[in-house]
Computed example of a mutant assay.
Amino acid sequence: MADAHSMERGESFLDELAEQCLAEHTGTDLRLIRACDITPEPICWMWQGWLAAGKMHVLGGAPGTGKTTIAMGLAATVSTGGRWPDGTRSSMVGNVVIWSGEDDPADTLIPRLAMADANLQRIFFIDEIRQGGERRSFDPARDMESLQCKLAEIGGVRLLIVDPIVSAVAGDSHKNAEVRRGLQPLVDLAAKMRCALLGITHFSKGTGGRDPVERLTGSLAFGALARIVLVAAKHQQQGDEGRTGRLFCRAKSNLGPDDGGFEYDLIQAELDGHPGVFSSVVQWGPRIEGAARELLAAADQTGEDDEGNTLADTRRFLADLLSDGPRRAGEIFRGAEQAGYSKRSIQRAANQLKVDRKKMGMSGGWMWTLPS
């Protein structure tokens, strides 16, 4: 009875509160949506597991890894409905809008897009704002409504690239609240227009070995707001053929798998029909397995590990260990430690040997196998 009485008193209080709120906030109404009235929808993938319509993505990496060249390659694929690094075709074809604060379209971005066989009629650059008789630079804090109107006017925008993404933050890019306030209009715009938002950023200095998401320059909010974080890296040591290996990895995903990636190379060439205009284009290589943190740690290694072993020694050790068949990663690392090889050097040797690394179920470990 006491419980029933307490509930009646509580309901009476809520009724009084509702009447008070109605009297004080006439004309203002907060809308609530009942969960049963919302129909579940699948993620709209442009590139399955890597690029999603209406979501924010971040591509980070150290200077010289070719982040902008990669972004131009992705833009080219969207503009033509071409193929992604895994061989699948883009599920969407449409317009691409680019806001760049670091590279000139004429001598840098257009040549890279042309080298990637982009449909240049579907590529647009955010230039300037004209207000009355004055011209000024685009300011996301003031001009997001104008951008939304222009995207709607163009129609069919599938990809919005912001390079660098920190240029969208008017305040301190190291403060979470200011980063969220600066990026939220862009995030909302991408959701409304159903286009993928790709922001490009650098790694902070002295962050080697840390989680790749934590290595992004500025506040952790950049990685937190992004639904997918992609990273690019370059091996610090040349391979056997004198080639510098490069890695494109998935470091975070709230929408699907958050590991794996692809090898890639940057090819320099003269642009056809434009003598003296040289540019770069991405040449994609085989798929690689493993967590981004481990793959990047291996790429950061120099010629010798902490114990003074050369990479050739480590490769021979790992090849011998796997010659009898697949082994669990934990077992490999324990054996390597006993033999005097660091975990990072083993990871790097595995990349050069192209070791196949597969996750054994949701709660299982990783199984390593030499390529057939």
Results as ranks from 00 to 15, higher is better:
residue 68 T to E: 04
residue 69 T to W: 01
residue 71 A to F: 12
residue 71 A to N: 11
residue 72 M to Q: 02
residue 74 L to K: 03
residue 74 L to E: 03
residue 74 L to V: 13
residue 76 A to M: 05
residue 76 A to I: 06
residue 77 T to R: 11
residue 77 T to N: 06
residue 78 V to E: 09
residue 79 S to F: 04
residue 79 S to H: 05
residue 81 G to Q: 12
residue 81 G to R: 08
residue 82 G to H: 12
residue 83 R to D: 11
residue 83 R to K: 14
residue 84 W to F: 15
residue 84 W to M: 12
residue 85 P to A: 09
residue 85 P to K: 07
residue 86 D to T: 11
residue 88 T to S: 15
residue 88 T to K: 08
residue 88 T to E: 13
residue 90 S to I: 05
residue 90 S to Y: 01
residue 90 S to M: 05
residue 92 M to S: 11
residue 95 N to W: 06
residue 98 I to S: 09
residue 99 W to M: 02
residue 100 S to M: 07
residue 101 G to K: 03
residue 102 E to V: 10
residue 102 E to Y: 07
residue 102 E to F: 03
residue 103 D to L: 06
residue 107 D to Y: 05
residue 107 D to I: 08
residue 108 T to F: 02
residue 110 I to C: 02
residue 111 P to K: 13
residue 112 R to K: 10
residue 112 R to M: 04
residue 113 L to G: 06
residue 114 A to D: 01
residue 115 M to H: 05
residue 115 M to D: 02
residue 116 A to W: 01
residue 116 A to Q: 09
residue 117 D to G: 00
residue 117 D to Q: 12
residue 119 N to A: 10
residue 120 L to C: 07
residue 121 Q to G: 09
residue 123 I to F: 01
residue 124 F to L: 05
residue 124 F to M: 01
residue 125 F to R: 00
residue 125 F to Q: 00
residue 125 F to M: 02
residue 125 F to G: 01
residue 126 I to L: 07
residue 126 I to W: 01
residue 126 I to Y: 00
residue 127 D to H: 01
residue 128 E to P: 00
residue 128 E to H: 15
residue 129 I to Y: 00
residue 130 R to I: 15
residue 130 R to N: 15
residue 130 R to E: 15
residue 131 Q to K: 14
residue 135 R to D: 02
residue 139 D to V: 07
residue 141 A to T: 11
residue 141 A to L: 10
residue 143 D to M: 08
residue 144 M to S: 09
residue 148 Q to D: 15
residue 149 C to H: 13
residue 151 L to R: 05
residue 152 A to R: 09
residue 155 G to V: 06
residue 156 G to T: 12
residue 156 G to H: 10
residue 156 G to D: 15
residue 157 V to H: 06
residue 157 V to Q: 05
residue 158 R to F: 05
residue 160 L to K: 03
residue 160 L to C: 01
residue 160 L to D: 01
residue 161 I to Q: 04
residue 162 V to S: 03
residue 162 V to G: 06
residue 163 D to V: 14
residue 165 I to T: 11
residue 165 I to D: 11
residue 167 S to D: 09
residue 169 V to I: 07
residue 170 A to E: 10
residue 170 A to K: 10
residue 170 A to G: 11
residue 171 G to S: 08
residue 171 G to Y: 11
residue 172 D to Y: 00
residue 174 H to W: 04
residue 176 N to Q: 08
residue 177 A to G: 04
residue 178 E to T: 11
residue 179 V to W: 03
residue 180 R to E: 14
residue 180 R to H: 11
residue 181 R to D: 15
residue 182 G to L: 13
residue 185 P to N: 10
residue 185 P to W: 13
residue 188 D to Y: 01
residue 189 L to K: 05
residue 191 A to K: 14
residue 192 K to Y: 11
residue 196 A to C: 04
residue 198 L to N: 11
residue 198 L to T: 13
residue 200 I to V: 15
residue 200 I to W: 04
residue 201 T to V: 05
residue 201 T to R: 03
residue 202 H to G: 12
residue 204 S to I: 12
residue 204 S to N: 14
residue 204 S to F: 00
residue 205 K to I: 08
residue 205 K to F: 01
residue 205 K to W: 04
